[in-house]
Design a protein around this nucleic acid. Structure first.
Lengths: 196, 196
DNA sequence: CTCAGTTTTCAGATATTCCTGAAAATAGAG
DNA sequence: CTCTATTTTCAGGAATATCTGAAAACTGAG
């Protein structure tokens, strides 16, 4: 591996992590090299830095592109293809989550829905269905939450994440305000006027 | 595989998913069978239902136990070991996230911190560090958020997740209330009295 | 202690995934 | 069109991961 020590350490670790997250080691390493690169790299740059075969790089890049994790950028006066990762790390995470959702969560949800539609043939299947129902509800809750959160501007997102569970305390404040004696009952937050 | 069709479909899908999340297929299947089982199962039950070797079951259970994902439950009048998954699916997810954090996120954070302490030897390393800094900050933000959220009671958690980005609107309400003209300036939510 | 039932270990067999070099395909310049 | 630079494909070899049966280790009853 032809990289400065600091870079090599990162690339090796990232490759290892990749392999625990369902991506093969080399693909993780390719991504890592692109992530920390100062400028767009071409396939041969990756061959040189990682010491792997040209065809391996080609396959790795193809996989990363299918995940929308790397972008192909033209470089003036050079026929070769150059690749980069987005500068904005938040957009990287959004992409990653969206892709995994599309490939793993969505098919799982439809599998669960399908099995929940079936009429259970016996007590065993009936009990299984009740477990699947719990799982289905939880995944729906999480994905609905994410779909909602994902729309926020990065700044608002950071603000929200920084608050963490303190939001729960704000909920209490809200409850006290909108649940005044003699009031019209509990209002949903979306019914409050919105300065957008 | 010796399971009713509905169960088998779930177990197969879950095993497949497991293999995309860094767990081997069989371990995923063992977990799936336990998850939908009506009662605690012993190793031989798993051998029969999955049609795999006794030793494979033993290794799979050992791995699941090391993740705290299955519990060993004694059954009266039976010397064999019986296994279950927790009934509460929320506690399952908490365990899963905590374990992955411990095994993957924490080591990554310390790797990043270590590399950020080093003095960059050249422009390339310097640029790499600035990228690693972004990554480190993002992971810290996310883990701090999770650490905070994780403490909530399940009910509150569900309430919070259900709100999704509507929370952002509550923030605006809060801002309007606490930023009244002539007020004492912005207060943090944690400084409000807490009923609880 | 001995013994039968049960679980764990682990070397080797099997299966899967990954990587490579060679050849084919593609694309732009002239 | 031809020629060259570049990328992609893919069969087969290399490396990993997974699975099994046999043997060892453990455990509680008697």
């Amino acid at each position: 591996m032809n990289l400065p020590p600091l870079c090599e350490a990162f690339v090796l670790h990232f490759g290892e992590m990749g392999s625990r997250w369902g991506v093969n080691r080399t693909v993780g390493q390719i991504y890592a090299v692109l992530f920390i690169a100062e400028a767009p790299l071409c396939a041969d740059d990756l061959v040189e830095r990682l010491g792997i075969s040209r065809s391996n790089v080609s396959m790795g890049l193809k996989e990363l592109q299918s995940w929308n994790l790397v972008r192909q950028r033209p470089v003036a006066g050079d026929r070769r293809d150059f690749f980069t990762t987005p500068d904005d790390i938040y957009s990287i995470v959004r992409t990653l989550v969206n892709e995994r959702k599309k490939r793993e969560i969505d098919p799982t949800l439809s599998m669960l829905r399908e099995l929940l539609m079936q009429t259970p043939a016996n007590a065993q299947e009936q009990h299984a269905q009740s477990r699947l129902k719990d799982m289905h509800e939880l995944i729906e809750l999480l994905t609905a939450w994410y779909a909602d959160i994902e729309k926020l501007e990065t700044d608002r997102l950071i603000q929200l994440l920084s608050l963490g569970s303190k939001v729960a305390k704000i909920l209490e404040v809200k409850d006290r305000i909108f649940a005044l004696p003699g009031g019209k009952g509990r209002q949903t937050p979306s019914s409050t006027p919105n300065r957008g």
